[in-house]
């Protein structure tokens, strides 16, 4: 029983992180039909921003996690610049394949550029403890603060994000642009500005995910976003890419599959199971768990 509960909480914690990253993939895909391969690397950008600013925060007498605000800002700027400098010009002239290759190029560029910076270099850096140690004992399971905060914060972020897309003017504009660009223009929506905003929000979420991730695994290195990003991408596809609640659901499914496989089967099988689940779901439901095709009616 205690193993089960422990595994469940670990799965939810992992799932929260995957879900936050998957949201970035799904929002960008939803709006410009591009798999933003550089998204995983935005986590790394957020990670390094925190590595360098946590000591500053602490020296200012602030808690270390405050640096996530700076990380959100930096990630949002990197995301927006990626769209403005790389994706938009390619989208104007090229095909979706050129855009995809550009995304891979941006991903490699970020990883290698980071390594080329002397303060970063090829060796991993260790982050200081972000959340307080210790936790609460429920039944015979110890639930640490990091796990609880990770799950709690990500749920709050997701609820806020969902309400934002449903209730605010910018959020509605984002949904319109993702569904029909020319109709959005006719409504008076500035499509380019809406796309840039989507990049800012999606990349900001990657910074929050980075905080959660290094709170648990306090190691930052230039390729830290690759596998994390790939699994989050799987989560987004699993839930139905382009659908916001789908990314959240997919994230939790992947997190739970990974943690239960690690506990009950074998830790070396965890990743294999994640991708196996993806293949099975795609065979049964190609549009993802929540995906559906709504055709034009005449």
């Amino acid at each position: 029983m205690s193993t089960f509960l422990q595994t469940l909480f670990v799965g939810l914690r992992l799932g929260s992180i995957y879900a936050l990253v998957a949201l970035g993939y799904t929002m960008v895909y939803g709006i410009i039909r591009l798999i933003n391969f550089a998204h995983g690397d935005f986590i790394m950008v957020g990670g390094y921003t925190m590595i360098f600013t946590i000591p500053v925060m602490i020296s200012l007498g602030l808690p270390g996690w405050v640096s996530v605000l700076l990380a959100i800002l930096v990630c949002a700027l990197v995301g927006m610049s990626t769209e403005l400098i790389a994706y938009r010009p390619v989208r104007k002239k090229g095909t979706s394949m050129t855009a995809l290759i550009t995304a891979i190029a941006v991903s490699l560029l970020l990883e290698n550029l980071a390594q080329a910076i002397p303060q970063i270099g090829p060796n991993p850096k260790v982050a200081s403890k972000i959340f307080a140690a210790g936790g609460v004992r429920i039944a015979d399971v110890t639930l640490d603060w990091t796990t609880m905060l990770t799950i709690f914060i990500s749920i709050v972020v997701m609820v806020v994000l969902y309400q934002f897309t449903q209730k605010t003017k910018i959020g509605r504009a984002m949904r319109c642009v993702s569904e029909d660009k020319s109709a959005s223009i006719l409504m008076g929506i500035n499509v380019n500005r809406t796309i840039v905003t989507t990049f800012a929000i999606g990349s900001g979420l990657a910074a929050i995910a980075a905080l959660m991730y290094i709170a648990q695994y306090p190691k930052v290195y230039t390729t830290m976003g690759s596998m994390l990003g790939l699994k989050a991408f799987v989560a987004a596809v699993l839930g139905g890419i382009g659908i916001i609640p789908g990314a959240m659901l997919g994230g939790f499914v992947i997190g739970l599959v990974e943690s239960f496989t690690t506990s009950y089967v074998s830790s070396s099988m965890a990743d294999a199971f994640v991708f196996l689940i993806l293949i099975i779901v795609l065979i049964i439901k190609p549009a993802g768990i929540l995906g559906k095709n709504m055709g034009e009616k005449v």
Binding site: R172, R175, C176, E179, D180, S182, A183, L186, M294, E296
Partner: peptide
């Protein structure tokens, strides 16, 4: 072709 927002 109307172009209404079908998911809204």
């Amino acid at each position: 072709g109307r172009h209404i927002f079908s998911r809204m």
